Simulated scan of single mutants.
Amino acid sequence: MPAPVNTFKQALAEGKTLIGCWLSFAEAAAAEAMGTAGFDWLVIDGEHAPNDIRSIRDQLMALAASPSHPVVRVPIGETWIIKMVLDAGAQTVLVPMVETAEQARELARACRYPPEGTRGVGGAASRATRFSSIPDYIATADEQICLLVQVENRAGMAALDEILEVEGVDGVFIGPADLSTDMGFKGNSAAPEVQATIADAIRRIRAAGKAPGVVGVTEEATQGYLDMGAQFLAVGLDLLLLVREARALSARWKAKI
């Protein structure tokens, strides 16, 4: 039996546009509920949400029956954490702050078993192998791992063409908040200079045969990124969806008093 097919990676390779959302609660119950919303993919955020390997694992378990594909964003691009989330059952990994082609190559190697890569061969008791019930996992896993790298500052943008040449990188995700701040706009991702940089990056990513991704937190920004050609597009954050609706509900009823 081979490793399960990564339907998210397959869809990106087919050129499909996929709509996703961020998971920021770091709770399995919230992830399970979001898994019923109809998103194509959901990001388990290990960078800015209070996650550890156990909570990441629990959210992967909670999404196992969902049609929404889990994407795990690791806190940093290090081999050890990539090994852990892959063994926990992640098939798609999102890595923040990638600035060089050499860094991208090391990340690609971390997602593959030797001799092509550096992933540790010790998954017999892991979720990835379904606890040794997938006998051909090690022989077939590499081709089902999807690596997404985040380019979100001027250094990364300067090295984008070289990063796009790295074999094993399936997609490049643009981080508007970090990029705009690094460009001197303090989180103002709507600045024309920032938008022009994002549009140019998306064009270059597509031209290289890779999948471009981005996150939008307003209707205007999200539509703009879709029009630019973003292929995997995050359209919101679960926590913000909750607090916005809660604040609007509170204000609406208090206004009636």
Results as ranks from 00 to 15, higher is better:
2 P>D: 12
2 P>G: 06
5 V>D: 12
7 T>G: 01
18 L>V: 08
20 G>T: 10
26 A>N: 09
28 A>C: 06
32 E>A: 15
32 E>F: 05
34 M>S: 11
35 G>S: 09
35 G>D: 11
39 F>N: 05
40 D>Q: 03
42 L>T: 06
45 D>S: 06
47 E>S: 02
53 I>T: 12
53 I>Y: 12
54 R>Q: 13
54 R>H: 13
55 S>D: 08
56 I>W: 02
59 Q>E: 15
62 A>P: 06
67 P>T: 14
70 P>Q: 09
73 R>V: 12
77 G>K: 03
77 G>H: 05
77 G>N: 06
80 W>C: 07
82 I>T: 06
82 I>Y: 08
85 V>C: 02
86 L>R: 01
87 D>E: 15
87 D>P: 03
89 G>V: 08
90 A>K: 00
92 T>F: 10
92 T>L: 11
98 V>Q: 00
101 A>R: 00
106 E>Y: 02
107 L>A: 07
108 A>P: 01
110 A>Y: 02
114 P>N: 04
116 E>R: 13
117 G>R: 04
122 G>K: 00
126 S>M: 13
128 A>R: 00
132 S>N: 14
137 Y>R: 05
137 Y>Q: 06
137 Y>C: 08
143 E>R: 14
144 Q>S: 11
144 Q>C: 10
144 Q>M: 09
145 I>K: 01
151 V>T: 11
151 V>K: 03
157 M>Y: 14
158 A>P: 03
159 A>I: 08
159 A>G: 02
166 V>N: 08
167 E>Y: 02
171 G>Q: 07
175 G>E: 07
177 A>G: 11
180 S>M: 11
181 T>Q: 13
184 G>S: 11
185 F>K: 08
191 A>R: 08
195 Q>A: 10
196 A>Q: 15
198 I>V: 15
210 K>L: 10
212 P>V: 07
221 A>L: 10
223 Q>H: 15
225 Y>N: 06
226 L>A: 15
226 L>T: 03
227 D>M: 05
227 D>T: 13
230 A>P: 00
231 Q>N: 04
232 F>V: 08
235 V>Q: 04
239 L>I: 15
241 L>V: 14
242 L>H: 09
243 V>H: 07
243 V>L: 13
244 R>K: 14
244 R>V: 01
247 R>H: 13
247 R>P: 06
250 S>G: 03
251 A>H: 01
252 R>I: 00
253 W>D: 04
255 A>M: 02
256 K>W: 02
257 I>L: 12
